[in-house]
Structure formats: C-alpha cells, structure tokens
Simulated assay, not measured.
Amino acid sequence: MAPDPRSAETTSPAGHGPRELTATRRLLTCGVVAGPVLLAVLLGQALWRPGFELGVHALSLLSRGEHGWTQIAAFVLTGLLVGAAGAGVRRAAPGTSGALAGWLVTAMGAGLVLAGAFVVDPGTGFPPGGPPPALELSWHGALHDVGTALALNAGVAAALVLAWYAARAGARAASAGSLLAAVAVAALAWWGGPGVPLRVTVAVTVLAAWLTAACLVLRRRLCTEGAGRGGPVGGSA
C-alpha cells in the first residue's frame, strides 16, 4: 500500500516529523498485535475450557461461565487496540479513502468493545451445566449482536476501502489481498446457511490476519519514510 507520489489521495501528510512518525508507528503496532492476541485467547480457551467445541459453539459463548471474564477482557482489550490502529491508519494513509478506512477500522474496534461489554445470551451446550438457551433476546444479548455485526461489517468495509486505496497507489498485491479478505469475510459471515459458528470463526481469523498484514505494510512504509528523512526508525517505535 505504498503511496503514489502522483496522487493527492496517497501523498504523505505535511509535517510528518520524527515524533509524528513514531506515534503513528506505535498506533499501527496496536493493529499488528490485536489479531494475534484475540486469536490466541479464543483458540486457547476453545482448547482449554471443558465442553467447548469449535465449529459447534459460537465463540461469544466463551464469555459465559466461571472463566468468561477472560474472553470479555480479550474482546475489550483487542477492541481498544483495533480502535487505536484506526487512528494509525488515518495518519499513515492520508486522503479521503485513507481517512474513511481508518474510521471504519476504529468502528470495528468499537464493535469488539461492545461485544465484550455486553455478554451474549445463553446458548446450547456451553458452558456445561449453564442455563438453558434464552427464549427471548435480552437487551444485553441484542447489544452483543450489534457489536458483533458492527465489528464484522466495518472490517469488511475497511478492507474494501483499503483495497481501493492500494489500487490507486499501484500496489496491486496489497489491493488484491484486501479485496480477497473482504469478499471472504462477507461470504462467510453473511451467508445464512448451516455451520454459522464455524464460518464466523474462520471469518474472524481472516479479518484478524488482514488487519495485521495491512498495519504491517503501512508501518513498513512509515519506517522507510522515516529513514529517508533521517528520523528514528528503530527501537523507538
């Protein structure tokens, strides 16, 4: 997603000095680590907590039960990291499409925070011995669903916008990667057929991998800019 100097949409912001570059790299690093942290907690709990079966139980059900606080904290923490990454994207990818992509990434983070703050309603079979499935959607279950939908849909939209940004910059591989991620997540999350828990798990994995890759690309470009301007590029970020 390197910028095309001929396009006003993708030029570096004026006055992006060493301190600003360092701050932006740190914000983008939040996006680099957010996905791996969330997936590590999700998969770790899926393997560790008795009775949970990937592909059968929804990931959000990990927020319920005695150890549910772990998943709640993971949703909220990674949501804050993703929100910070959105600010980094806005700073690193100036122009209308870069700003839009950054705000969409921030919205994705807000969805994760919302999904963590409001626990999903009881489901079938997990946690063992837990309450039976809710007959009606509760207010906190509804807000949890809103957060989940916001995170997934904002992620799809952000990937599409960054695909456009990268295409205008002439970065075909980055553009194709973002486009494929958006199409894959949309197909997995929007299709109303069977296997919803498994498909959402795969969609979350793809979206997390995309965000990490996109933030790494933008961060690497900033490091190159910093080196060209004589600014700090190494461990200070």
Rank of each mutant, 00 (worst) to 15 (best):
P94W: 04
V82G: 02
S97W: 12
A110W: 11
T22K: 02
A101Q: 09
Q45H: 03
S63I: 03
G55E: 12
G109K: 00
R19G: 11
S60I: 04
A14V: 13
Q71S: 08
G51Q: 06
Q45L: 14
T11F: 02
R19C: 05
G55R: 03
G55A: 09
A40N: 12
L54I: 06
T29G: 09
C30I: 06
V113K: 01
Q45R: 15
R6S: 15
C30Y: 02
G98N: 06
Q71Y: 08
A85T: 04
V56P: 03
V82P: 04
P94C: 07
T96P: 00
G65C: 04
L54H: 01
V89A: 07
G65F: 00
T29W: 14
A84W: 04
A8M: 06
V76K: 02
T10I: 01
M108P: 01
L77N: 01
G111C: 11
L47V: 09
T29Y: 03
R91Q: 13
E20T: 08
H57K: 07
E20W: 01
V56R: 14
H67Y: 12
R90I: 01
L27M: 14
S7L: 15
R26W: 11
F52Y: 15
V32T: 14
L62H: 07
L39C: 09
A23F: 00
G44Q: 09
L81S: 04
L104V: 08
H57S: 10
L28P: 06
L38M: 14
L61R: 10
A99M: 07
A107F: 14
H57N: 15
V89F: 12
G102R: 01
S60A: 15
S60N: 06
V82S: 04
A87V: 03
A84V: 02
V105T: 12
S63N: 10
E66D: 15
